[in-house]
């Protein structure tokens, strides 16, 4: 069990986080840039000094700082694998030298070779890092971290600098390797899709506060607050009355709504198409609903299938989250 409980002052706010990562679990800390995600990770890793709190991994206290005690286990005694956006390979060593670096004697063991094979690096063992692609370098960094037999993996947006194809491939690889080795992992990202794809559980961090921790599907379906909903992609919040419901605000996620009337799937409303704009291979349709409310929905329908501005259209929200927030308060909060 990886327990992180900390208070780290930042320029604009203090990061206050309590989280637990179960053994063998991959926990994704998701939030916008500047939310304090990397602060949590860097403090857990020992790169930043813990201001207040405790970092405990299984039975080992890595850092504790309170009124009575201040003690920190140095980075090289923590046995944590740490990966960041840039792989930071040793440029003067070959791939083999890099992977074997943390092993006794600096020699690649049978297990190390198996790891290299598992990560598709066997043919590159004699190559220097400068001759590798970004994705290959990140694989080497992962192999190097795993070969040192870490007690937990800390990953700070390790795939952010990669193109979409390489990122997807490495996400797959990481998930496979992490499961096989039953590694406890804390992964920081601001890519929602990455967090959803990788996480057993994810935590939503905003301005230094952990707003919600749950499996990704649960967070998507039942965000704890409108702010969490906004952070995971809900774009509009409409009064229940618009959809014939009483009270509360309904969260609308463009990918969790259908154009058309399907009352058995969720609340339905009729509106008028205002705008239709291309977006990542599909379209985003903007509807004006009764009361002047506006809502966006994803639609894969190509040109020539209706949905031109001025046409009437139905929208069905798929099991939308309901927030018991008065409409006036929501408007005041910019929701």
């Amino acid at each position: 069990m990886f327990r992180i409980s900390l208070e780290q002052p930042r320029a604009r706010f203090t990061v206050r986080v309590d989280l637990e990562v179960a053994p063998g679990e991959l926990f994704c800390l998701f939030g916008p840039s500047g939310a304090g995600k990397s602060t949590v990770l860097r403090t857990a890793a020992g790169i930043e000094r813990l201001h207040r709190g405790r970092v405990v991994l299984d039975d080992a206290v890595l850092a504790v700082s309170d009124r009575q005690r201040r003690c920190f286990l140095p980075v090289w005694r923590r046995r944590l694998g740490y990966l960041e956006q840039h792989p930071r390979l040793f440029p003067h060593l070959t791939v083999e030298g890099n992977i074997a670096y943390g092993l006794p004697g600096g020699q690649l063991t049978k297990e190390g070779r198996r790891l290299a094979r598992e990560l598709g690096l066997e043919e590159f063992l004699g190559v220097y890092p400068h001759a590798l692609s970004g994705g290959q370098r990140q694989r080497v960094a992962l192999a190097r971290a795993l070969a040192a037999d870490p007690r937990a993996l800390l990953l700070d947006e390790p795939f952010s600098a990669l193109d979409e194809a390489a990122r997807g491939e490495l996400q797959e690889l990481l998930r496979r390797v992490q499961r096989r080795h039953r590694l406890t992992a804390l992964f920081v990202t601001h890519h929602l899709a990455e967090a959803q794809r990788l996480a057993d559980r994810m935590g939503i961090l905003d301005e230094g506060r952990l707003l919600q921790s749950a499996p990704p599907a649960e967070i998507m379906a039942r965000p704890a607050t409108p702010r969490v909903a906004r952070l995971v992609g809900y774009t509009d919040f409409l009064p229940g009355g618009v959809f014939g419901r009483s009270g509360g605000l309904l969260g609308v996620h463009p990918d969790r709504a259908l154009l058309g009337s399907f009352p058995h799937l969720g609340p339905v409303a009729e509106g008028v198409v205002e705008q239709r704009t291309p977006r990542e291979g599909t379209f985003r349709v903007r509807l004006r609903l009764p009361g002047g409310h506006r809502v966006s929905v994803a639609s894969p329908l190509p040109d020539g299938h209706g949905l031109t501005p001025g046409e009437a259209a139905w929208i069905t929200l798929l099991d939308p989250p309901v927030f018991p927030v008065p409409e006036s308060a929501a408007r005041a909060a910019g929701l």
Partner: peptide, 10 residues
Amino acid sequence: TVEQASLFLG
């Protein structure tokens, strides 16, 4: 940060 990577490897 390359030196730091070495520290993380124990």
